[in-house]
């Protein structure tokens, strides 16, 4: 699904040039659950931003389902992103002025899904994360765990092929954290590829593979579980 080769990302300021990704190579298969770990500043989030097509690499190749992303313009990347990728952030990133339902509905609006279908799809996503009863609440009226469950619902409502999770349990207590991880496992089991950046060794154990990064490149890879390929439509 994802193949990056000799990927580089350089941040330049007037005085300093920082190499965030240094000729990094990585391949992620469909239906795989990959955890990316490493110390702060090693390039994990930069990698996730590039995989999420939110940022452009400075050099190297990034193939997504066989399409070279680094050659696409902003609009095409945006189109590809909104129909294929869901995001879960550490700080939830819900919009304060919108209700739970409206937050989850947003990706569907931007994908031009009809209003009648949206209601159904949002309902399903909220059922899946057990947040239906809170659909009319605002983020400020929810606990951290509930906010992250809403964020997960928002990430999956569009049935993306890939979910990128940036420290999804970083702001949660252990119980809520475990619940969110269970949700991600369930999504993965239903066929969604998941790439998760985490500092938590505990969370990383849910993944098939752990990629350890240092100074912008992969240092080791641990395969924890064998990847089970799901039959189409399973």
């Amino acid at each position: 699904m994802i193949k990056i080769t000799d990927l580089e990302k350089i941040y330049r300021t007037e005085e300093v040039e920082t190499l965030a990704l240094n000729k990094m190579c990585l391949e992620i298969h469909e239906n795989e659950f990959v955890a990316i770990m490493g110390p702060s500043g090693c390039g994990k989030s930069t990698l996730l931003n590039i995989l999420g097509m939110l940022d452009e690499p400075s050099a190297g190749s990034f193939l997504f389902n066989g399409v070279e992303i680094s050659k696409l313009n902003e609009r095409k990347r945006s189109d590809l992103r909104k129909s294929n990728i869901g995001f879960v952030f550490q700080s939830f990133n819900l919009i304060d002025e919108l209700t739970v339902f409206e937050n989850v509905e947003l990706p569907l609006i931007y994908n031009n899904v009809k209003a009648s279908d949206r209601k159904q799809l949002v309902g399903n996503a909220l059922e899946q994360v057990q947040m239906m009863h809170r659909r009319n609440h605002f983020p400020s009226q929810l606990s951290g765990g509930q906010q992250q469950r809403t964020a997960v619902a928002r990430a999956v409502v569009n049935s993306p092929k890939l979910i990128l999770a940036d420290e999804p349990t970083g702001n949660l207590d252990s119980q809520n954290g475990s619940e969110v991880m269970e949700m991600l496992i369930q999504l993965n089991e239903k066929g969604t590829t998941i790439v998760m950046v985490t500092h938590s060794v505990h969370d990383s154990r849910y993944a098939h593979r752990i990629v350890h990064m240092l100074d912008g490149k992969t240092v080791t890879e641990n395969f924890l579980k064998e990847l089970v390929y799901l039959a189409p439509n399973s």
């Binding site: 945006s78 992103r81 909104k82 995001f87 990133n93 919009i95 002025e97 947003l106 990706p107 931007y110």
Partner: peptide
């Protein structure tokens, strides 16, 4: 700005 960023991540175009 943050809200704009989130909306963009979720697929909003500049025109949206």
């Amino acid at each position: 700005r943050k809200e704009i960023g989130i909306r963009k991540v979720l697929g909003a175009s500049v025109t949206n």
